[in-house]
């Protein structure tokens, strides 16, 4: 037998989610599928980071982002931090056919204007708006309670900015995330940004 079936391959990776996601990224056949699998990879890495908030809540934005990039690299994803693309973007992931997925990451300070500044960096400075490069992420790290409320307020704040043609949808991968789409300033092509949350809040109430 010269072939390995999908069934045999899935059996090999079934207890290794990082490998399964990495394989999905590598075998993606178009940009939309690739970007969807990149989003799965980012969520997987962030789930690892969410497990020990007590060790991460004092960390700065760059430290958290570098850790996220390292976790993505361990999944054989070509991610870099602080890469020069119209400025120094927090995360750049490259794939075949010059696919790009760029993300800006902000540690939330209960200041939505600060988040807006980060979003506009991603929107107007880093992304090209070209085909194969028009999907990205905006990551919000929060060491405050109830990140669901933070993301809901952030979505409202973004909506209030009345960016021309911007629409919103819920994220099918993660109910703490949402997606915005609007025509890119440079190209007019739809720029899809997934707004992604990582809670590093830690306040155990078991102490007397």
């Amino acid at each position: 037998m010269t072939f390995q079936s999908i069934e045999q391959l899935l059996a090999l990776v079934q207890d290794k989610p990082a490998l399964e996601i990495g394989l999905s990224v590598a075998t993606s056949n178009d940009y939309a599928e690739w970007a969807r699998n990149i989003n799965r990879a980012v969520d997987h890495a962030l789930r690892q980071m969410a497990q020990n908030p007590e060790l991460r809540q004092a960390k700065g934005e760059d430290e958290l982002t570098i850790e996220l990039v390292s976790l993505l690299n361990m999944m054989d994803i070509e991610a870099g931090h602080d890469t020069k693309v119209g400025g120094h973007v927090d995360i750049r992931i490259k794939g075949k056919r010059d696919y790009h997925w760029l993300a800006e990451a902000k540690k939330h300070k209960q200041d939505y204007a600060w988040l807006m500044q980060g979003f506009q960096q991603l929107n107007t400075r880093y992304t090209t708006g070209l085909a194969g490069q028009d999907k990205g992420g905006f990551i919000v790290y929060s060491d405050h309670a109830r990140i669901d409320r933070t993301m809901s307020k952030w979505r409202d704040h973004l909506e209030e900015q009345k960016i021309e043609g911007m629409s919103f949808s819920n994220c099918e991968l993660n109910d703490l995330s949402f997606q915005s789409t609007h025509p890119h300033d440079r190209t007019g092509r739809p720029l899809e940004v997934r707004h992604i949350a990582l809670s590093i809040y830690f306040d155990p109430k078991d102490r007397i």
């Binding site: 990776v13 990224v25 590598a26 075998t27 054989d76 794939g95 075949k96």
Partner: peptide, 12 residues
Amino acid sequence: IRAVMLLANSSV
């Protein structure tokens, strides 16, 4: 699998 993935993905 990871080696083949690298050949199929990334800028390689």
